[in-house]
Design a protein around this nucleic acid. Structure first.
Lengths: 131, 131
DNA sequence: TCCGACCTTCACATAAGTGTGAGGGTCAAG
DNA sequence: CTTGACCCTCACACTTATGTGAAGGTCGGA
């Protein structure tokens, strides 16, 4: 498929898809006329990239990490040098930290929202109620 | 405590602590002579900010979200307009998405590492073993 | 008193991710 | 053959989070 369709399917702007190619994260094939030609998997892959970027992971790291994420057929293990494994382990750990931080904060927000909700139900007159 | 001590305790550069103030995320008191004066809680708060920034949350949002995170005494509920709650809910949901994406990716990386490890143990001769 | 280790503000610089648009090619449908 | 909807590359601009350094104030100890 061409870039426009992928963009529509994923909601990711064309500009960004080109950027993903520029950084080597998602490199499509090319048609005769020079148009980018994305395969079916590209949609998943693009969304994965989007999610990781949103989670603060830099493109450089995403490029390192992406090969692990296309699970079907781990035939690509051959290029795993000890350093690569080190990098992956460090990245896994830093991701765990992020997950913990995010989870703690999210849960705190949830509790906060619940508290407000409960207060509002019990003493509506004390709360701005122009909902 | 002054900025230097907070910086040492948290590992966050002075420059960034000043930036946190500039953006309203962490505003210290001031001594007579103009020096910033941070209280004890500031260390936790600064680390929280750091974690959320690393997780890709923009300062604008962190500022919104931080009040929920100092749990002891939810006496600050008064300034929670319906819009604020909306924002918080959206933020909570987007954090959940991030957590899911990160978790999926991290688990995939873990599996990948495990696979490599297992292969290396069983057929050491096929693997570059200059460890 | 003066030095060194702090602190201040201001400002310029950079990298990453993203927006926007110019100038131009491709191609199918009218 | 022209028009419209795609696509291309290139390039400039913006924001956010950061680094770095200049010019100068504060203050405790030799």
């Amino acid at each position: 498929m061409r870039i426009g369709e992928l963009s529509e399917r994923t909601g990711i702007p064309r500009r960004m898809l080109r950027y993903y190619e520029e950084t080597g994260m998602l490199v499509p094939g090319r048609c005769e006329n020079g148009y980018r030609d994305y395969d079916e998997q590209s949609a998943d892959r693009a969304l994965q990239i989007r999610g990781l970027l949103d989670a603060g992971m830099p493109t450089r790291v995403i490029k390192q990490v992406l090969p692990c994420l296309k699970q079907p057929g781990v035939a690509l293990v051959f290029d795993a040098t000890p350093e690569t494994i080190d990098i992956l382990e460090r990245e896994r750990d830093s991701m765990s930290e992020r997950i913990e931080t995010l989870t703690r904060s999210r849960d705190a927000i949830s509790r906060y929202i619940d508290t407000i909700r409960r207060l509002r139900m019990r003493r509506p007159e004390e709360v701005s109620s122009r909902a």
